[in-house]
């Protein structure tokens, strides 16, 4: 049982939740995630740890409502209990001093990017961040990202904030301008695919944090498998970060759609019960 101690909306469908999880708060590192099961009948979903306070014994999650479980979670309030929170899972990001790091975050992907950008900054790197979303209100954690970046470029699809255009355009601007030693991209699979193609042109080593469907998160089921460099890897134990130029994103995108119909049905059923 893990108590929700804080909740804050970043936009209509993106919210931050601070949850009691003392052991995880101590052990987690940038790049780690947790598996959450809201209630007895709930499914297990992975969520990245966006931050932690070991003194208070809490972790911070930033969640985007996309379907049933995230919608249920969005309706939960401080004081309520989340039945299961397990973690920290996944390999932490390998943070070292490399020079200039280009961090690219799309939508809710900015949340998991934050601790990684912070880590690279603390390690003495120059950090340039490109934050992208459909429109202004979906750009989250801007202040926090500014605090750990030497430069922040904001891109919106509709031009309502920053520059109008895709994340790749913002990345391209930096890559053309100056040498970049490493890039980290986190966001929707399709965004990571194109971000990876962009950095590949410039021969910049790139990590992507993959968000496949998971069940246990401990290597037991293989639901999270992806093809990386022609080999099958498990995102929960071998990842979630992989060399973005080696990932078969098309396969990953198809696997993400594995349960589309069932999910849609379940979500619609749920909406009926709450309205």
């Amino acid at each position: 049982m893990n108590k929700i101690v804080e909740k804050e909306f970043f936009s209509e469908n993106v919210f931050k939740m601070v949850i009691e999880a003392p052991e995880i708060a101590i052990s987690r590192k940038p790049g780690n995630f947790v598996i959450v099961r809201l209630d007895e009948k709930g499914e297990r979903i992975p969520l990245t740890i966006a931050g932690a306070d070991p003194v208070r014994g809490t972790i911070t999650l930033v969640v985007q409502r996309v379907g049933l479980t995230t919608a249920k979670m969005m309706r939960m309030e401080p004081g309520e209990m989340i039945l299961d929170v397990a973690g920290p899972l996944g390999k932490p990001t390998h943070i070292e001093k490399v020079g200039t790091v280009l961090c690219a975050g799309g939508g809710v992907g900015i949340a998991p990017l934050l601790p990684i950008a912070q880590g690279f900054k603390e390690a003495g790197n120059k950090v340039i961040s490109v934050l992208a979303a459909r429109s202004k209100d979906l750009i989250i954690l801007e202040e926090e990202m500014r605090a750990c970046s030497d430069e922040v470029i904001i891109m919106t699809d509709d031009g309502s904030y920053g520059k109008k255009g895709l994340v790749t355009e913002g990345m391209e601007e930096v890559l053309q301008r100056e040498p970049v030693d490493l890039s980290v991209v986190i966001g929707p699979a399709i965004m990571m695919k194109f971000a990876a193609l962009t950095t590949q042109k410039y021969n910049v080593k790139t990590y992507a944090s993959l968000n496949t469907i998971m069940v246990d998160g401990t290597g037991m089921c293989g639901a999270c498998r992806v093809t990386v460099g022609g080999k099958t890897r498990f995102v929960c134990i071998d990842g979630p970060e992989f060399d973005a130029h080696e990932v078969d994103f098309d396969e990953m995108i198809q696997r993400l759609g594995a349960f589309k119909e069932q999910e849609k049905e379940a979500y619609e059923r749920y909406l009926k019960t709450v309205s």
Binding site: T69, G222, A223, R255, A258
Partner: peptide, 30 residues
Amino acid sequence: NSVGIYSSNEYLTRINLMHATNPDYDTPVH
């Protein structure tokens, strides 16, 4: 790695631990 191909662990876990065949539970299975 096509959709609809499971390891036995995933298949059985979805059904036994997560009760995917019971419509009251949220976990799906094909």
